[in-house]
Amino acid sequence: MKITLTVNGERHRLDVEPRRTLADALREDLGLTGTHLGCEHGVCGACTVVVDGEPVRACLMFAVQADDAAVATVEGLAGGADGDGTLHPLQEAFSRCHGLQCGACTPGMLMTAAHLLDTEPDPDRATIRAEMSGNICRCTGYTGIVDAVADAAARRARGLRARETS
């Protein structure tokens, strides 16, 4: 089946079997291997991408279901407004706070966290833990991940306040 999808702002036309998952279309057909697979049955969250503004598990969605959709993956997070490759504040925070070790869960964590910060500007640690609990990390014990999301949120809140008062 022929589909069109926009990934990180770039339009792609693909011819896929109906059974092909969105994760495989991204990884195999578009070479965007940043989206990882940890279970392929919807539990671990490693494959989380944002489709039309909502986080979805790319292992549970067929590529054909994403026809005409806008997909955001980890590859599109960095880049800044002018595409200069600047890391996203969450990526910076993950590095600063050791929110990643092996990096297998990281793309899903980042996409989930990005959506969280978009929808909940000032989450406390309990909220972060609850909201991130659909993503499994086997390495970090979550301390660094919660620290990173909290840190990114706090910096953003500070930045917003600074802008308001200036």
């Binding site: 291997t33 940043g34 960095a78 990526q91 990281t106």
Partner: peptide, 8 residues
């Protein structure tokens, strides 16, 4: 690893 460019 943060930018989806890991080599797994």
């Amino acid at each position: 690893l943060l930018t989806g460019r890991g080599r797994f």
